[in-house]
Amino acid sequence: MTRLTKLRESQFAGAAVVALVASAIWQVSSGLSFVIPSPAATAEAFVQNFADPRYLSDIGETAQAVAQAFVIGTVLGGAIGLLLGLSAAARTWLEPLLIAFNGVPKIVLYPVLLPIFSLGGSKIVMGVLFALFPVLINVAVGVRTIPPVYWKLGRTVQASKWQLFVHILLPAIRLPLLTGVRLAISLAVVGVVLSEFFATRFGLGRVVLQAYSHGEYAQMVSTILLLILVAFTMSVLLWRLERRVR
């Protein structure tokens, strides 16, 4: 118990030291060039942004797109992963295609998506494409590695298809599924914001790009920090959940 507490304390202390050192380097380098805003100026922009209704609506726009991309991506990835895990035929037909597609830098498809899904829809689709694969791959592998004796057990107690799904399959893949979901959240953020960098009217990606072209570097960095902070927090929360689950 005390050792565990100590470890946690030292982990926290370590993170604090890293943050301190990073801030110091940041402070020093901001004095070297005007393109690097000082930590104080960035912090000020960070706080001020939240008083700006336009900025808040940009946050809402991005958050909404990320949430939609995450949900659709997880459901779709989970469904395809399930299919690949359970059906040998689906594996033979789809797996090479999916592996190849996963290797494609998905952002190159963005110009293709734009005319089909318009500005608002394309970034969601891009987010889905990013979020899809980690869930798909983790679920497929998770399902495939369920010990055959679990299915035999399910058959001998005459479990229904639904019971097999809820009481055998889902709990058996709980760990890879959580890993997939954790990665899907981060990647949904990446897909959406990346799309907003390229072409969009609203969203945090647009804020970053606009701040860049106007030379408002404090604004740019503070928004990037916000994105990192949100993605990081969600990842850490899910990671902790993952460790608590047996």
């Binding site: 055959p148 004796v149 679990y150 035999k152 107690v157 005459q158 709990p171 709980r174």
Partner: peptide
Amino acid sequence: GPDRDIGVVFQEDSTLPWR
């Protein structure tokens, strides 16, 4: 087919680790 009136104990470990 399988029947709950026929109980089976398997050679492999069939305990479910999440229960």
